[in-house]
Design a protein around this nucleic acid. Structure first.
Lengths: 255, 255
DNA sequence: TAAAGGAACTTGTACAAACAAGCGAGCACC
DNA sequence: GGTGCTCGCTTGTTTGTACAAGTTCCTTTA
């Protein structure tokens, strides 16, 4: 059963994306939309809230809503899953586990994951045949067994874990910065030592807030960029000073 | 006049941040909160929606809401304004215009800003006395005059433009990646050539969708990181391949 | 003992109504 | 001509009600 406001949101989004409501133009008023769809004003407002969260429309009290753009920002699933993102954009991609071992948690891992024993996995991801991403992931003990059962060349860890144990990654926290490539980075990604890498450190939890994994992902410069669309009122982004949360130079596999 | 749901949201947020509702614990039900605050359930739902957008709480239909975290993601204003972010976090900061000139727009600038003539400004921002950020900003013609009137050492451009011409930066689009420092970058930021910089390219518009500026900001590695919190359903982030929108190597002031 | 069923609770969706607050255009006045 | 004002429109906030859908836990049943 799809909610009514979602249907209305879909229809409005299509109209915007198709150009029926050009960028900069005014959207019909809530009352007009409500009448057209035979719905209450509150329902229409809910539909429009969806589009506003996507950054498609903006509004000010008293004035008609305005179309802001036609490029829709995508879902959290795509942010989290390299495979889903690559597939959605039609890229050839792959992945390979380079190293995998269990060990006791150290540093801030116990605080973040809540388990004494953890599973650490080192994966290289390729895009169009080129290695572009190095993932250093640490899994909490309760998912370790499921991760170990995955094949080394598993394309999408996110999807595989959903299918095998019904695990859904629901919430995430991300820190994005730039770092010079270390010895292992340069070897596995095929770049010079010290060349720039885009680093994304994340901690993911389930719906219930149960920590699943914490990861240090490094992208080759130029291969990918993070894109953010936001507006006043709907904005999950903040700049943070230096390394408040992760210790500088704390590498997971170096030793 | 502050809306009621905002007051309730503030109170709930305080309770979470103060530890009255620890991470992982259940929030009171909507009905309970409604009764406690003497408000309708819909109003309480609005308040909770604010916290959900901030990533503080998560919810599933049928089950009680759960506290996900205690670090609140900040406002868009802070993402946009270096000064506001630095001040809110108690850092000493400064800024200095290095170069400023009018020229005709080139490359994708005309498409993004919609004006033939533009004003380009090169600013260095310091944090705790150290240069950490190099801003290469291009303003649309209609704000150029107001920007030129600002003092060279203006601390907060965002605030100054609001006070002088009532300009409010409302919406933004951001691309974040890593690049090696060029000759000018290394000279002004005091780093070695080729060392990693965190680059944020953005285009900002007003409420009405009118483009104000497009900018290429480069942060010294280790000085700042971007932090993102998100949950399924409320997520403005997407990965993008290479340089789909901005041409690689298109520097504004090199020459 | 384990599975099935159901009842109470909780969140999600939808509708209707009313007032507040801000915007924009047209009008009257100076 | 331009200034200020009013009026209608539009979005923002709040309340109340009703039902749908999912969760949790206890009870019943095989």
């Amino acid at each position: 059963m799809v909610a009514r406001y979602e249907l209305i949101a879909d229809e409005l989004r299509d109209e915007i994306l198709s150009g029926a409501h050009p960028v900069g133009s005014q959207l019909p008023s809530e009352a007009e939309l409500a009448e057209r769809h035979g719905a209450a004003r509150g329902t229409v407002r809910q539909a429009i809230a969806v589009l506003a969260a996507e950054g498609l429309v903006g509004s000010r009290q008293g004035a008609r809503r305005i179309v802001l753009g036609r490029t829709r920002s995508q879902s959290f699933a795509e942010l989290h899953s390299f495979a889903q993102w690559a597939r959605a954009n039609g890229y050839r991609f792959g992945g390979q586990v380079v190293a995998q071992r269990r060990r006791v948690s150290r540093g801030g891992e116990y605080t973040r994951l809540g388990s004494e024993e953890v599973l650490e996995v080192l994966r290289v991801r390729t895009l169009e045949g080129e290695p572009v991403l190095l993932e250093r992931t640490v899994y909490a003990e309760w998912v370790a067994a499921a991760v170990e059962r995955l094949p080394a060349g598993c394309e999408s860890v996110t999807e595989a874990l959903y299918e095998s144990v019904g695990l859904v990654f629901a919430y995430g926290e991300h820190l994005i910065d730039a770092v010079p490539a270390g010895a292992q980075d340069s070897r596995l990604l095929g770049v010079r030592r010290g060349s720039p890498l885009l680093r994304q450190r994340r901690t993911t939890t389930t719906h219930e807030g149960r920590p699943v994994e914490t990861s240090d992902d490094r992208y080759r410069a130029g291969s990918v960029a993070f894109s953010i669309r936001n507006s006043i009122g709907a904005n999950p982004l903040v700049r943070q000073a230096g390394d408040l949360r992760f210790r500088a130079g704390e590498h997971m596999f170096e030793s």
